[in-house]
Design a protein around this nucleic acid. Structure first.
Length: 109
DNA sequence: GGCGTGACTTATA
DNA sequence: ATATAAGCCACGC
């Protein structure tokens, strides 16, 4: 199953599973998608994001809970505001409270 | 089949 | 804390 889909498709499916009020790291998405070394591929996949309205890519942050340095949605600030709207808290201007809002790997599987 | 690219990650200074 | 280097791998041309 799912072996016909590309890695990108798998990544998109995983990102879509992220519940509101939670965030996931590239590493987590990559791991659930099938391989922990696809972190860069995850970033690339979201960069080409074919369905930004279906894929909550703003819930994906780097492993330290840091938002993207060059968020493509119109500004890094936009991503932060959307996460705050989801109920996610920040420890500073660019760092999400990953310690309490990072979803568990098994929650995506 | 090969090359360049990148929203990552880890290590080092 | 930031900056730089190297490793990692799929996609598109």
């Amino acid at each position: 199953m799912s072996e016909n889909l590309t890695v990108f498709q798998r990544i998109y499916e995983v990102v879509k599973k992220i519940p509101k009020g939670k965030v996931a790291t590239y590493g987590q998405v990559a791991l659930v998608a099938g391989n922990p070394r696809w972190a860069r591929v995850v970033g690339y996949a979201l960069h080409v994001n074919p369905d930004p309205e279906t894929i909550p890519c703003y819930r994906v942050v780097d492993r330290g809970g840091r938002v993207s340095p060059a968020f493509v949605f119109g500004g890094q600030n936009v991503q932060i505001e959307m996460l705050k709207a989801d109920g996610v808290k920040f420890i500073d201007e660019t760092h999400v409270d990953i310690k309490n809002f990072c979803i568990k790997t098994d929650e995506l599987m």
